[in-house]
Design a protein around this nucleic acid. Sequence first.
DNA 1: TTGAAAGCGTTACCAT
DNA 2: ATGGTAACGCTTTCAA
Lengths: 324, 324
Amino acid sequence: MTSIKDVARIAGVSVATVSRVLNDKGYVGQRTREKVEKAIKETSYKPNEVARSLFKKQSNTIGLIVPDIMNPFFTELARAVEDMAIKLGYNVILCNSDGNGDKEQAYLDVLKQKYVNGIIVSSNTLTAQQVEELNIPVVSIDREISKGLPTIVVENKKGAMMATRYLQSKGCRNIGHIRGSYGVVNAEERYEGYKEVVANEPWFRESYVVNGNFDMQSSIEATAELLRLHPEIDGIFAANDIMAIGAIKVAHQLGKKVPEELAVIGFDGIKLSTVMTPELTTIVQPIYKLGEISAEMLISLMEQQPIENTYCKLDVELIERNST
Amino acid sequence: MTSIKDVARIAGVSVATVSRVLNDKGYVGQRTREKVEKAIKETSYKPNEVARSLFKKQSNTIGLIVPDIMNPFFTELARAVEDMAIKLGYNVILCNSDGNGDKEQAYLDVLKQKYVNGIIVSSNTLTAQQVEELNIPVVSIDREISKGLPTIVVENKKGAMMATRYLQSKGCRNIGHIRGSYGVVNAEERYEGYKEVVANEPWFRESYVVNGNFDMQSSIEATAELLRLHPEIDGIFAANDIMAIGAIKVAHQLGKKVPEELAVIGFDGIKLSTVMTPELTTIVQPIYKLGEISAEMLISLMEQQPIENTYCKLDVELIERNST
DNA sequence: TTGAAAGCGTTACCAT
DNA sequence: ATGGTAACGCTTTCAA
């Protein structure tokens, strides 16, 4: 690999001068600049990013910590983050934490050791203190870590209310809820939204809510239990699309027609929701947008650009398809 | 951030000694070692990876270049690679190339500048020369770049033959094929497998093959065209699962019952294929395994460990579900 | 067994 | 306008 010294030697100048033309900084004579550029081209020299990073204490890299990239929500998010990062001159290191706090901390540590400029994280276990100790920009996405930290989330409660009311408007009389994991902020918010709408209904009892852990398998079990306990249920609001799909599978197995006998609505708007039959009615989050905005915000923070707003709550939208 | 100098000062030794205990290399007195370890703990010192990388010319990082992480096949692959990489002490930089040769080269360049230890890549445009010029270990996955380069692929042709023969065994008399993009090795191989089985059938004509470009939208269009042209078709082999799902959607729209009137078989075995109704019969690749093996092989190469085999062709399996 | 110092490839300050 | 050089934080050789 050719280094800046080689270029300097070939161009007959000092390394300082080469560095100046490389970064377009400081005075360089026209004649000299040309010589240097020629040498760079000849050797197809590419600056060593590691040496640069060591000096600058920044590596032009950002870390992205998500629970699991296999979850389609995070897949799309990751894609958006990577796209925006590249566009603005950064690479991204991908980290799957499985929601495990120890893994998260371990990732934070190595990312810091690698001089990443900033980190985007989706976590429910991380504390504000852990984040602040890092002393590098962090934006929290999908799940709020603490007021005060830069955050991008969506209108979870509002979306949940929309979903539940929509089911009512479709004539559902008994509406169940498959909730997401306990302790996860957005699961709680969606549950609250549902609760607020149905709390005063005469039929409502807490047993209309079951835990689906945000994944398909748990949802299948939870739905089976829910429908066994409450065969009168004619509408289900699932806290995410994967769980909604699981619920529909169970309905099929039980011979319940969707949407005629059981209406199902999800939350997220993952691509998957349009490929199945029936296509899923759902509360759509602007997932890609979430990722883009989080990357933009993080990079603004990293580059110390003036930033209007460090807390961003995006709106959601009900898309009506064939499962309701 | 505390540096090795701080630790040395606190422990009352030289940085060289600290380095020795850090890396457990060279002689260090028992007493001294304890002092140093104490200082490390007190300051919760973490070595600076960038400085290390500069010296070592290696960054404990590998690059992963895929066309698009949104394709479920690559999602699972990425997850496997990341898991294995972490397990063996490496991080991974994620790169989405969109199959664009320029982006691929751009990624190769920055990865090299960042001193990644090695790269896993899935590409049809990259040449052996481009890869060799890098002078760092590269393993090619899912698509072969050139004999001689480390490669992990699956039995594409065999799988395609299995799929087509299976359709025959199910009583299909006229079998169409939705092929993957032209120029992509595995698309060609799967096409060849199909062709080999049906070439001598009296009904066979080239118009039984349409191009679905490996994505759902194209597949939907291609399938519609195929069924319009050949309404007699009662079996379809799609070169991947996404296209198979698209084909089933079209069948639904046309009122054709799957599998009664039209049997559909896919290729890949992505998770998605089990969540839909009907569940998809498909040729399952060991996707996660592919990712694991590629990471293992790459890292063996990087660490110059003795390596048995640099070309790995994994077997596939037909999983019968409800679409056939 | 330990320490001093060179070197990894840059950048930025200070001279000239 | 250009060059010399310290510094970034670490590892490793060479001496002691």
